[in-house]
Amino acid sequence: MSYPFELGGETLWDAGFRTGQLYASLARGTAEFLELPSGLTPNDQGGCDVEVESFRAFVEALDGIYSSTGNQVLHGLAHGLLVTSLVLLERAGGEITLTHRYAAALLAEKAAQARVMA
């Protein structure tokens, strides 16, 4: 069983059911923390539709927290969600500009993560 993330009928990421549920839950909770929409909406196929501009704003805000905090716990908590979100955003045709000291490492991790996100 899968948990598809879709844009206009195209599957961007056909996550495993539990993986997709966890990702969507983490995104939902983080969006609440950031006080903005995640850009992910549950759909009738048992996954989520991606609204690119809202999702881009969410990923940008998540990156802002990740790159600016001195709190290692907050940094670590945001890390996995951010890397996966960068892959999904790219597949949706969106992008954000990474200019901070973590940019090169995040881009390398995004490329590696993209290879395992079927």
Results as ranks from 00 to 15, higher is better:
E6K: 13
D44M: 06
G94F: 06
R91N: 05
E10V: 11
A118R: 13
G9H: 10
Q45T: 13
F58W: 02
G20I: 03
G8I: 04
A78S: 15
V73M: 11
G8N: 14
L89G: 02
M1H: 11
G16Y: 14
T97I: 12
E35K: 12
A104Y: 01
V87Y: 06
T69E: 04
G29F: 11
L40W: 07
G9F: 11
L26N: 05
Y23E: 06
G9W: 08
E95R: 14
F33R: 13
G39S: 10
L62S: 01
A108S: 10
T84P: 00
Y3V: 11
T99V: 13
G29C: 11
R56F: 04
A114C: 04
D14P: 05
I65M: 12
F58P: 01
I96D: 06
R91E: 07
T11M: 08
G8T: 03
T41N: 05
R18W: 15
T69A: 09
F55I: 01
T11N: 04
G76F: 07
A105K: 07
D14Q: 12
A27T: 04
G29W: 08
F17N: 10
S54F: 06
A61Y: 00
V83P: 00
M117N: 06
A31M: 03
R28D: 10
G39A: 14
H100F: 10
F33P: 00
T30K: 13
R101D: 13
T97R: 14
D49A: 08
M1W: 11
G39L: 09
A111N: 02
L40E: 04
D63H: 15
G94M: 00
A118Y: 07
L107Y: 03
R101S: 11
A114G: 00
A114D: 11
Q72K: 15
S38E: 11
N43F: 11
V52Q: 13
E32L: 12
F33Q: 08
A111L: 07
T84K: 09
A15C: 11
S67A: 15
A78R: 04
A108P: 00
E95V: 03
M1C: 08
Y23N: 02
